[in-house]
Amino acid sequence: MTAYVLHLAILAGIYIILTVSINLIIGYAGQVSLGHAAFYGIGAYASALVSLHWHFPFPAAALTAMLVAGLCGLALGLPTLRLKEDYLAIVTLGFGVIVDLVFLNLEFTGGPDGLPGIPPPSFWGIDFRPPWLYLILVVVTVILVLIFTYRLVDSYHGRALRAIRDHEITAQVMGINTPAYKVVVFTLAAALAGLAGSLYAHYITFINPETFGLHTSILILAMVVLGGMGSIAGSVLGAVILTILPEMLRQAHAYQELIYGGLLMLLLIWRPEGLLGRGKLSLKFLKRES
């Protein structure tokens, strides 16, 4: 039982990183990414490959994961972020499909069988194999990510991002380089998703393309919308709820996706600000003056 709780806690931590990272794109820059699981997957594969072939220690593997995922985010963001938000949604969705196919078809990613035998992290003389130690590693990472994002969104740059979200033209007139901001935040979010992928790969020690498909992207999106777009505390809450809820509703497994889809629609119609939306970081921007 304790082992199971620990397992859920570790997964929740990984989802918190994913949700917080995509919230930077959705809630702060006002863009949509529907392929976030692709960056998660790229991070997981990059981290697994460098550990398996070149025996990178975990911190170096995690950094590689962030770097590779971030570079992919940069490559995708540069051409598309100049365009309207809807385009980004489709392009990221397509990117997710492409990455999935790449994982499935390439030889060194193991195809549909994936990569087994990824070494669990072990550095500074500590072996992180026991779940409670791994949980500590995840919690420390989550705290670092949260500190980073809180500092980011409360800084000059965070205010610039929110200005872009609320009214891009006005932001431009105020001298904010809007495409650059969007590309940088997209790259950062991709890198954070890569970090989450690395944590996942070295915890489960086995990865295959199935984990990083469209349903994971949608799940992350549901977590953000549930907690409230533009609220970091909301993202944490949304990630925790949607990690635990499916476990409590095990019998209703077949209804999971139905529930996520319905949740996205109904929440937006009845409470577009999400569960924590009325907190400090509210989403009044959703209601456009017209």
Partner: peptide
Amino acid sequence: GFHPLVPLISAIGASIFLQSL
């Protein structure tokens, strides 16, 4: 009349909902 993100995400929700239905 909402931010364009909102109907977009709602449509994604509708798509997932109909597919799983």
